[in-house]
């Protein structure tokens, strides 16, 4: 069972590496969106400092949303998905492997880039680990929830906008606790509660989302 998980993970990572330009697009989108905000709200330092956690989180959320359609689309087009569903391995397992690979290739770069971007907003340096940790805990939840939406809208006309409509309301709690963690730290009340809640959310999503996603894929491929 573990070998199937590792095989799918390795395959997806390899495919992502071969087409690495796509991954850079997600990262570039994240960077550009974050850099747009000072133009919109003005470059006043205090104001930028105040909105920084929210801006970084919203941008990370949009970037991972934009990448979601790639999660199953290619495998759907070339028939790999059908073969995987027909295989004797439990669907939950390889679905989880695909989501893992997806997060490693799209979520992790965002997590790593975020502290550097935060410096553009003049965030206190002590808050950077909190920001990174909140993103490291939060973006996997985004990937897990988004995978369910991606599976449901697989091959549906107008899928991209539909996916956003389905998934964004579900992202709200993650956004609240993610950006809230940084703000709580800056406010002096400590980020532990927010981070623990994010961790709990990750555990819950990890337990439930792959099942829902596998069920959605079966429905899509019937």
């Amino acid at each position: 069972m573990l070998s199937a998980f590792l095989a799918v993970l390795r395959r997806d990572l390899l495919l992502a590496w071969r087409g690495r330009a796509d991954l850079l697009v997600t990262l570039a989108f994240f960077v550009v969106v974050v850099c747009l905000f000072p133009f919109g709200v003005g470059a006043e330092t205090n104001q930028l400092r105040a909105i920084a956690p929210g801006v970084l989180w919203v941008a990370a959320l949009l970037a991972s949303l934009l990448a979601l359609h790639r999660l199953f689309a290619q495998d759907h087009a070339d028939g790999t998905l059908e073969q995987l569903l027909l295989s004797s391995e439990p669907a939950v397992l390889w679905v989880l492997a695909k989501i893992c690979a997806f997060w490693l290739t799209t979520g992790l770069p965002l997590v790593l880039a975020a502290p550097a971007l935060a410096l553009l907003f003049d965030i206190e340096e002590g808050a950077l680990p909190v920001l990174t940790l909140s993103l490291a805990l939060g973006t996997p939840i985004l990937a897990l929830l988004g995978a369910v939406g991606a599976a449901l809208t697989l091959g549906v006309r107008g899928g991209g906008m539909l996916l956003a409509l389905l998934v964004l309301p579900l992202y709200v709690p993650v956004l609240i606790f993610g950006a809230g963690a940084v703000e709580a730290w800056l406010g002096g009340s400590g980020a532990a509660a927010h981070l623990l809640l994010l961790g709990g959310g990750l555990a819950g999503a990890l337990a439930l989302a792959p099942w829902a996603c596998a069920a959605a894929l079966r429905i899509a491929m019937e």
């Binding site: 449901l152 549906v156 539909l162 959605a216 899509a220 019937e222």
Partner: peptide, 28 residues
């Protein structure tokens, strides 16, 4: 609600629309 309605309307095959809608209703 909008998401549910949009999803069930966007899928043409009624069987798939039914089930996909049911999953998103439960997730919601």
């Amino acid at each position: 609600y909008f998401g549910f309605i949009a999803l069930t309307r966007a899928i043409e095959d009624p069987r798939r629309a039914d089930r996909a809608g049911a999953i998103i209703a439960l997730v919601g």
